[in-house]
Design a protein around this nucleic acid. Structure first.
Length: 546
RNA sequence: GGCCCAUUGGUGAAAUGGUUAACACAUCGCCCUCUCAAGGCGACAUUCAUGGGUUCAAAUCCCAUAUGGGUCACCA
């Protein structure tokens, strides 16, 4: 019996050969091809968007192709609707793949783009490997492998299925065939010819030239339960056949790069360029760790949707950790987008990339402050319809009023920067809505003037003698000052500071009384604008219900 | 434990052998000012984990140590 018989026994229905697939998926010439290859585990990790941005930039800046490939070889972990979630996330951030598959619709000539649909392709490649003696079935049970590991640990040997410990590699073909015919479960392992003591040069686009030990492990390339390949083998087949030129993946893959190198060599395929990106890390006290879905809500993209961060802010914040010179570049080139930026993998942070929500907030405030009121209105309305129905209803009642609120201290040279994400809006402006003002439990934040009699005196005098809705801002403020003079408050703060005893207070105190009376809050945007939007009747009403 | 990667201020970082170690966030102070936010100005590393070496010259090159991270699955 020969390897060919073995291969035929294992894959009787696989007729196509490696050569057939080479012809089906011809080389793409000099086209740059990148891909994002997430597993459908039910959420989109921030690392996925981070890598997608890198993929997208590399592809787009070179007029290349950006693919989305779904890595669903581990069907135990698969979650329904996860694929949809991945598409949504990419669409949200404008990282639209050129080739992908959705709801059975395949876009692109190198599909299928879902690994579970590529089973026969993988198996054809594995069949070839068995025929040439570079892969074999392994009948070791989980217990056998546990035992091996314990023994290796005990003897202080490197753990793993390699060399003399790879006992199934020494089975004769006849023994293998008999085992299979007896129905023993098996996996397919790659037969390594590497030497762990021997180093080779490996070039990574981020880290530069590295020296790695050759792989000598007979690692699993096909699983026993479903005949699907492991990541390592799928990477070889897919990225070769899809003609990927840049493999962008997390740094955690660097340690298995030797496996991939040996696999590519076994087929004599050209190695793609590898871009091992730094891990996104999180600091917690003194410990540093990978950002994780379970512990860090901001690891999942839904966090940003729920909070209502503008997509540009998220991209911007990620760009700053992709290349730290990005921010400076962008302030110098405010009209350009991240696609105009000259991304340089060697400039990626060598250690971990620290994703900082404070930084995001700062960037986001800046971005939102520069938006037109109408755009903030549209975006926050879209957000509210999904995540804050009450706000959506308030907006529906009077869209132009809402837009006017957003326009306070906006669309000017130094716009107000107080909104970092749309979920903040309600807390910032609720008092502008009469219904909210009435419904809420109110705590008036009085400051220096707290005597309610004096407060009412100030307010009544103001509204009866001085307030005129038609005043422009200067006139308005001058009248507030006149009010001060009448009631014994200093209209000039500098003067007040020099002679505090001559006055009951100053213009700031008077303004605060008016501000708190109509908003309950001591800190608000421009008071003139607020009064104007509220209207005299409502101001009066709010004074009366004090 | 083996292998690999990293280590610059409160934080993210720039600098690729050559004057006073960019910039940003945070913090603090002053100014502006009706409050807040913003803005303006300023402060914030005698020093680049530690110890040796190479060099006229080192954060930058070399060696060792320490610390942190990644990985060692039929998970990607």
């Amino acid at each position: 019996m020969t390897n060919k018989d073995l291969a035929e026994l294992i894959f009787p229905n696989i007729d196509k050969t490696v050569e057939d697939y080479e012809k089906m998926y011809p080389e793409r010439g000099n086209v740059v091809v990148t891909r994002i290859a997430p597993s459908p585990t039910g959420y989109m990790h921030i690392g996925g968007i981070y890598q997608s941005i890198v993929d997208y930039i590399i592809a787009k800046r070179n007029n290349g192709v950006f693919m989305l490939r779904i890595e669903d070889t581990d069907q135990k972990r698969e979650v329904k609707e996860a694929v949809e979630l991945i598409h949504d996330a990419l669409n949200t951030y404008g990282l639209i793949p050129d080739e992908y598959e959705e709801d059975g619709k395949v876009v692109g000539n190198y599909g299928p783009y879902v690994q579970s649909e590529r089973k026969e392709i993988y198996q054809a490649f594995i069949k070839h490997l068995i025929e040439i003696g570079r892969a074999y079935p392994c009948f070791c049970t989980k217990e056998d492998l546990d035992e091996l590991r314990v023994m290796q640990d005990h003897k202080k040997q490197r753990t793993g299925y390699y060399g003399k410990y790879a006992k199934c590699r020494n089975l004769t073909v006849d023994e293998m065939i008999n085992n299979i015919k007896e129905g023993k479960p098996y996996v397919i392992r790659f037969k390594s010819m590497g030497d762990f003591e021997h180093k080779f040069k490996f070039h990574d686009e981020v880290k530069g030239d590295l020296e790695l030990s050759e792989n000598d492990e007979d690692f699993v390339i096909m699983k026993s339960d479903n005949g699907l390949p492991t990541y390592h083998f799928a990477h070889l087949v897919d990225d070769h056949l899809m003609r990927t030129t840049y493999v962008v993946r997390g740094e955690e893959w660097l340690s298995s790069a030797p496996k991939h190198v040996e696999l590519f060599q076994a087929f004599n395929f050209e190695l793609p360029k590898y871009v091992h990106t730094p891990l996104i890390i999180k600091k917690e006290g003194n410990s540093i760790r990978k950002i994780s879905k379970r512990k860090d809500p901001e690891a999942t993209m839904s966090y940003y949707s729920e909070h209502g961060y503008p997509k540009e802010a998220v991209i911007e914040s990620l760009m700053t950790i992709i290349n730290s010179n990005y921010e400076e570049w962008h302030t110098e080139n405010p009209d350009k987008t991240f696609l105009d930026f000259d991304y340089n993998p060697t400039k990626m942070s060598a250690g971990g990339a620290y994703y900082d929500l404070e930084k995001l907030n700062s960037l986001s405030k800046d971005i939102i402050s520069k938006k037109k009121a109408h755009d903030v209105y549209l975006e926050s309305y879209e957000w509210a319809k999904k995540y804050n129905l009450k706000l959506a209803e308030l907006i529906d009642n009077n869209p132009s009023y809402y837009e006017s609120i957003l326009n306070i201290e906006r669309e000017q040279e130094k716009p107000r920067k107080d909104i970092a994400y749309y979920a903040m809006i309600e807390d910032l402006i609720w008092y502008m809505f009469n219904s909210e003002f009435d419904n809420r439990e109110k705590t008036y934040e009085w400051k220096n003037v707290t005597d309610i009699g004096e407060i009412k005196n100030i307010l009544h005098t103001y509204i009866e003698k001085y307030y005129d809705a038609n005043d422009d801002k200067d006139t308005w403020f001058n009248k507030v000052k006149e009010l001060c003079d009448e009631l014994g408050y200093a209209s000039n703060i500098k003067e007040y500071k020099q002679n505090p005893d001559k006055y009951k207070g100053n213009v700031a105190d008077i303004s605060t009384v008016i501000r708190v009376a109509v908003t309950t809050k001591s800190n608000t945007p421009d008071l003139y604008e607020i009064l104007k939007l509220l209207g005299k009747d409502e101001i009066l009403r709010r004074i009366e219900i004090l």
